[in-house]
Amino acid sequence: MNGPTDAPVIRLEGITREYVMGTETVRALRGIDLTIARNEYVAIMGPSGSGKSTMMNVLGCLDTPDGGAYWLNGQEVSRMIDDDLARVRNREIGFVFQTFNLLPRASALANVELPLVYAGATARQRRQRAEEALSRVGLGERMHHRPNELSGGQRQRVAIARALVNNPSILLADEPTGNLDSATSVEIMRVFGELHAQGQTVILVTHEPDIAEHARRVIVLRDGKIDTDRLHPVRTTGAAA
């Protein structure tokens, strides 16, 4: 890891983002100041139109802010060009999506290896690290199955393994249980809890209070601004940030 451990992994200062839709300008983010420390477990909530998705895209380096500054793990990513952003996404961010976003024709193993392909790892390194990541999420036995041969919960585990395989600074999950039944949701949230307990910084973007309950810190957005930012009492294992 880069930098001292007490340095924040994410620092946002006055982030703004606007979209032009037809004749109207939508101010999706209107000045966000936020600091997230290493090994925090944060849920970002908010009704639709609150700027939640834009926030997730900016945090995930898929989108660049119009104003303000964003430091991720010590690098100012708000000024980066596309190729550098791709590199940052590859090394620093692990995405978990609502719809899993696995490549349908590739095996679980090949899906997990994908970020390593773009990181330039050798075939042997890729295989070894992908197998480790799949074992970590309890899928060591199903590495060679294709997504359509796996259950929803298993698919999301593959996606989590893929997100972890490059040892990212943050795990960024967008409605990770949105397509899962409640039993499977509990199972997936347990995986996030375990990863957090092992030291992983986890950021959930969700509109479901039940899911947000799993996080230690809940940030609610409203109209492109932070409305509330509060800490939960410690519930289960692991130390508070």
Binding site: D83, R87, R89, N101, L102, L103
Partner: peptide, 16 residues
């Protein structure tokens, strides 16, 4: 298109 989006999110550069 979606596959391309996934690849880009996972770190594929334009030239990849």
């Amino acid at each position: 298109t979606r596959e391309i989006g996934i690849r880009k999110a996972l770190g594929a550069k334009g030239r990849d």
